[in-house]
Design a binder for these strands. Structure first.
Lengths: 404, 404
DNA sequence: TATAAGTTCGGTGACAGAACGAACTAAGTA
DNA sequence: TACTTAGTTCGTTCTGTCACCGAACTTATA
């Protein structure tokens, strides 16, 4: 378990690791078939990987024709990742191994004092969970923290995060790095949820999907062409400001967001109050609707109609194959069922809608996915030499090297 | 100019080509610096490329201390590309060399009979333009055809293309391939325009942008994270069905699209007619507004307000840094100016809006960009072994190779 | 004379391919 | 039942090829 392996081999090494990770216990001969490399190259690489502690013998095959094969598998405890879902009311942390299995977990109410208090709360929880799971500290390699808003991993700052006190004033990334003592990645929580559902939930094998988190506020994460879309300021999917539901030119819409006002918690409460004069919380509205309260039922209908409109907007712009609903409100079957009913009435092409399978743990799973990918990239090299296109220069710029 | 170069060298060969393409006339020593490869490797590769006819000596540097360097550049006439923009009323074709320079061009009204007639019209125009530009037929390698709707390059069919007769009933891709006699790519016209502006127009160097084409209909192309976003059915950006502007739950909205009805040609004409009782065409409305007609002015205001809402929707979902307006209506300064004024009133974060620099030729330029990229990929190998992430399997599936 | 461009020469490391031994199953044979 | 033998697959060894590097060297300048 020394340092990163030699440079030039990284390519093949990476594919071998991939084959082992994906293919469970697998023999070297099978790896050769999968990767297209020759048997003895695989033997060499596997030997290296075994020496470095990433891979180990598991056993042998038997019952086949021919010689038995030695099988290898990932050493899942070679390194661990901390996954964090930092919500406005609740903080969840998980310790996961290299197979993405959660080996330790904890949750607590978010420290309302925000700022450094919150950072400390989280790192304490995480390190305690690791200790409890008997994971030694030096095996922790990376933490992925899901936060509301638009974090920027270069500056360490988080934009559009009004929920968390003082986070707009500090270098959050650096604070976490200090507290943890290892590398940290920040990512938007809804984006993580989208990745989570795409990896282990409803979205498996689907290259174009949207995850819509509906709760106190509304946000979405888009995976298009197999990649998470972030946008220019990491604010892709912040659909609260969609000009739908309320008049977007009103003053209030600029502050809270026209769509967010119409569809999230606040909208539901306000609608029910307008209809009945009674001010009750969201779960109560659902209960009453279930009990036969016509007004509550109408409120849910209205809300779902707005949800359908939001989904229509996403589909018109991003054309996902599947839309996954999440968040405390979005996960309710009453909303899913109604949205499925209303969407065909306002959008002409069929779109699948489903509930998030992972529920409130989607972001945690997504954080693990990001962490694992990142770890693989740093340990076994990124295999993306030149993803962008290479086109001739435009000619509006002066020619580059006329005379050197 | 034999076949594709040897496999194993493709990697470095590609980066050398890239350096030469980007770096204008460039010496081998400079290529070595740019690519990080050693001098003699570059010499070898450049020799190969020269033998194959892709690259040639241009001259020498002078005026420096040290030995003069021989400079090399792309052989721009080693291969040519046909770029086609197939619009509802007009067809444009261009013949471009490997530097993306247009060497021949032609345009004509679209053959209203559609189907094979149209395919023949286009291939005839293109091949005639090539002949006229003295480009021999065997040097034509690839055609990129921009079409309205959502083409699928696997099935060859085009979805959502009501504008063109019979195109929904045939394998358009195959028809073009037959007619041209070489490979053909289909792409949505607005997507191409977006790529065009991103390459040579307003969007240079910007990784996240949206191109909104506003004319008879409305569509948009999204480039996010440097890549064109296509969506599940190649229908990303088909924003006509945004639930904005008109009631999306009306019958008519399901047919034409709520937003399209509100903002495109039809909407402008209808609005002016509603205000004045007079039915005039779109250019007339603009003229009258310029002449001081209050009603026409109000119509443009209303339209621009809707445009701003559409842009807000795109920004809320995709978060581009820049929105480029194109299309016969979108290109008018009256709309741009008004949209710039209205957007901050319905969307809280600043977004640049600009007119397309390439005007109606954006799609043609984009087609060239796609063609060049594709040619580079086929000729010098795609260097994307495994772009996707490699995460452990989910566990919902049975373990793969427990016993082989 | 300093400096840079380009070539020649002698590596080195990552593979492939063929050949081969090892280990195993499944048959037939004594 | 025990002993072959054929067929199959696993994994290693050996040899070769190819891409590429580094250093030394030549050539051509300001």
């Amino acid at each position: 378990m020394t340092d990163t392996p030699r440079i030039s081999r990284q390519f093949s090494q990476r594919s071998v690791m991939e084959a082992i990770v994906q293919g469970g216990p697998i023999s070297r001969a099978s790896i050769a078939k999968l990767t297209g490399l020759s048997k003895q190259t695989i033997s060499e690489i596997v030997r290296d990987l075994e020496e470095d502690g990433w891979v180990r013998e598991t056993g042998r095959t038997s019952g086949h024709i021919g010689r038995t094969a030695v099988t290898y598998e990932l050493v899942v405890d070679a390194a661990y990742i901390i996954a964090v879902d930092l919500g406005g009311t609740k903080v969840r942390v998980a310790v996961t191994d290299l197979a993405g299995q959660i080996v330790g977990e904890d949750a607590a109410p978010t420290d309302a004092r925000g700022g450094m208090h919150l950072v400390t709360q989280i790192s304490d929880m995480a390190l305690a969970a690791a200790t409890h799971a008997k994971v030694s500290r030096e095996r922790l390699r990376l933490a992925v923290v899901g936060v509301p808003g638009a974090p920027d991993n270069r500056t360490g700052r988080i934009l559009l995060a009004p929920n968390i006190r003082d986070f707009d004033k500090m270098d959050v990334l650096d604070a976490f790095r200090q507290a943890f003592g290892f590398d940290v990645l920040l990512e938007n929580d809804v984006n993580l949820a989208a990745l989570g559902e795409s990896w282990q939930g409803q979205g498996q094998g689907i290259d174009n999907l949207a995850y819509v988190a509906l709760g106190t506020g509304i946000g979405s994460g888009l995976i298009l062409g197999g990649t998470l879309v972030r946008g220019a300021a990491n604010a892709a999917g912040e659909m609260g400001f969609l000009p739908i539901g309320a008049d977007p030119f009103e003053q209030e819409s600029l502050r809270v967001g026209a769509y967010e006002r119409a569809v999230a918690t606040y909208g539901i409460i306000a609608r029910y109050e307008a209809a009945t004069g009674e001010k009750v919380d969201v779960p109560a509205v659902f209960e009453r609707a279930a009990a036969g309260d016509k007004a509550a039922d109408a409120v849910l209908d209205d809300t779902a109609r707005q949800v359908a409109c939001g989904i229509a907007a996403i589909c018109a712009i991003a054309n996902p194959q599947l839309v996954i609903l999440g968040g405390s409100i979005g996960l309710r079957p009453e909303i899913l069922e109604r949205a499925r009913r209303f969407l065909p009435l306002c959008f002409p092409y069929p779109v699948e809608i489903a509930s998030g399978e992972l529920g409130s743990r989607a972001a945690l799973v997504g954080a693990t996915a990001v962490g694992l990918t990142q770890l693989h990239n740093t340990l076994f090299g990124v295999a993306t030499p030149n993803a962008g296109l290479s086109l001739p220069p435009t000619g509006t710029e002066p020619p580059q090297e006329a005379v050197e």
